[in-house]
Structures are given as C-alpha cells and as structure tokens.
Amino acid sequence: MKLSVLDQSPIRKGSTAREALQETVALAKWTEELGYTRFWVAEHHNVTSLAGTTPEILIAHLAGQTNSIRVGSGGVMLPHYSALKVAENFRMLEALFPGRIDLGMGRAPGGDRVTASLLNPTNTFSEQDLVQQLFDLQNYLNDRYAPGSAQAQVRAMPVPPSVPEQWVLSSTGHSGLLAAHFGMGFSFAHFINPHGGPEAVQHYRSRFQPSENLEEPQVNVAFFVFCSDDPEVVQRQQAMVDYRFLQYELRGRVNPFDYNDLKTVSYSPAEEARIQHNRQRMIMGSSEEVKKQLLKMADQYEVDELMLVNVASEFEERLESYRLLAEVFELKGVIA
C-alpha cells in the first residue's frame, strides 16, 4: 500500500501564514524520509485558517527542498486560469524537476463564489468550459494542435524532457468520467464526500481511454486521517475537527482556534447529526485502528494508494501521526 500526503497549510491559532508554510516544508521533508509517495498542496482563497493559495509557487519551493518524493497540486482550480498559463507553470516545474511533478486539477472555487468571480471575472463554472480547458491543456502539454487552429500558433514554454502526471480531483463521479475520457489519473476526495466513491472509481476504470501520458487507469483516494496511540490526543483532535467542519458548513469560513475555545461549546441535535455525518469523511484512532480502517477503505475502492489529509492543531502531533502510519504500513523510508 502506498501512502501520500495532501497538505492544506493550516494556520494554527497564535501562528502566522509564514509559519504554516514553513511547517508544510518541514512536513514534506519528513514524509519523504518516511517513504511517502507524493506530497500535494491545496489551493484555497479567502480562507483565514489556510495559507495555501498558489500551489504552483509552493510546489517549486517544496521540490527544491526535497529529493525524490513526487510533488504536486491537490489541486489547481482550473476555472480560475487559462489552460495555456497552467501548462506553462507546470512545464516550468517539470523542466526544473523532471519526473517528479504532478498536476492535479479540480473545478471547485477553493473558497467562495465572490472570490472566484474576482479571480476570473469571465468564470461561468460551465461544464463545457472545463471540458475545453482539459482538452486544451493536454494539447499544450503534448505539443499537438490541429494545423491552422489559433492554438497551433502557440507553444507552451519551456519544453521539458517529460510530461507532468495529470490527475483530475473530484468528490463526484462526473469528473471521474472526464478523467477517463482524457486518459488522466483520478483522485477521489472521500474527505469531502463520503458517499458514492467506489462507484465513481469503478465507472472511471470501466470508461478509461488510454492517452499518450497514461496507458492504464490510475486512482488514489483522499481521507482526513489522524492517529495517535494516546486516546486523549485522539479525542481532542476529533473534537477540533468536528468543530472545524461544522463552522465551515454554518459560516462558510473557519478562523484559527484551539481546544480551549471548545470548552463551552454545545451542539443542537441537528448539529450533532451533522457531526456524525462528517465523521464518515475521516479516520481517527490508534495506529492499528487507523490502519485497519484504511485497508478496509482501500478494499472498497480497490486502490493501492491512499492520500492522507491531516489538519491537527499541533504540528508535532501531525508529524507523529504520519510517522506512526509509515511505521505500521512498513513504508520503505530512511527513518521509518
């Protein structure tokens, strides 16, 4: 079983965005040493508790600070950008770090719709626009366009020695069908939507069309995961993640907070029900308990790679969680 990381650069209460990004760099180095396969960084806008807004810039720094782990976007939100600019960004990254770059793409706003409209005033969130962008992007990355077309006059530069891996990220099955049509990898976000994932992956596989970049279907699945062999630590982190999800659903944003802020919090029956629903998006417990649940989910999805998202409030506990999982899964890292 391969384990990978999706990091959102969470900003802890009393901390700063710079410190959050420094923690992301430290985490990339740590998980590389532990034997993780990929390290992806997310794109969020106008979210005060997350520091990652520009994955393409952060990827360049992370790749320069590491040696072998694959580094990529989880993901670039295509509706905000032109396909040509995305192709240029990732061709530059691939030229600098050949064979190590993943281009993960999504269509969500990565924040609120007002912010999305300012990032790209022409954005209509049209399904056809997304299809066209994926089509254009593959053409730019592979230097192929119909003679006489406007795009045939433009080449995405620089031209690297290889093509970055391309993944479609989604919490629905529909985008999985687009990944299948274009011959791209598919990453299902179980941490966003805990329902319908195995069926979405099955449909992706059954409709997959090989491309010049990917001959066989390639899938991973992402979960919120935290483990500690101290039950009190698990309980504290569970309470904080419950609160985080609920605040985002109720208010559309989450300001940095700590465990002390929850001591006077009480929930209505409706909120308690929502908490129980959200717990389907995460796996928490001791290292053995988490391993058992992750393997169960891997069997349901029929995958051999799991992408782990950890937003624990204490950075040392995030590091330890990833170490425990590397140990229990027997990853081939230098310090595992």
Rank of each mutant, 00 (worst) to 15 (best):
D129L: 02
K85W: 00
D229W: 07
D7P: 02
R281A: 11
D258E: 08
A146S: 11
G285V: 14
P109W: 01
A239K: 12
A146R: 05
E330G: 05
D136K: 06
M92A: 00
G185H: 03
H174R: 12
H195I: 14
F223W: 11
M1I: 13
L262S: 03
R318T: 15
N67H: 12
H45P: 10
K2W: 10
T24Q: 10
V311E: 06
M297S: 11
I57C: 04
P198D: 05
S266T: 15
F39Y: 09
L103K: 01
L6N: 03
L141F: 00
D129G: 02
L250I: 08
W30L: 14
L78Q: 02
R144A: 08
Y248R: 08
L96Y: 01
T115F: 06
P210E: 01
L119K: 00
A63N: 07
F90T: 00
V114L: 15
L308W: 02
Q153I: 03
H61Y: 08
G196N: 02
F125G: 04
S82A: 13
T124Y: 06
E199N: 07
Y145L: 04
V71K: 01
G196V: 03
N123P: 02
P194D: 04
Y140W: 14
Q128S: 13
D299P: 04
V159S: 01
F135K: 12
P147L: 09
A95M: 06
P55A: 06
V25L: 14
S9K: 03
V41A: 03
T24W: 11
G14N: 08
S4W: 05
P121Y: 04
H277Q: 14
L262Y: 04
T37V: 08
A189D: 10
I275R: 09
K29I: 08
V219D: 10
Q132T: 14
F329D: 09
S162F: 00
L306S: 06
E56S: 15
G333A: 03
R279D: 11
N142D: 03
I275S: 07
A312T: 15
L27K: 05
G176M: 05
A326V: 01
R207V: 04
N139S: 15
P161N: 03
R12F: 07
E302C: 11
A152P: 06
T24R: 09
F125L: 10
S117Y: 01
I335E: 04
F188S: 03
Q138R: 06
L177K: 15
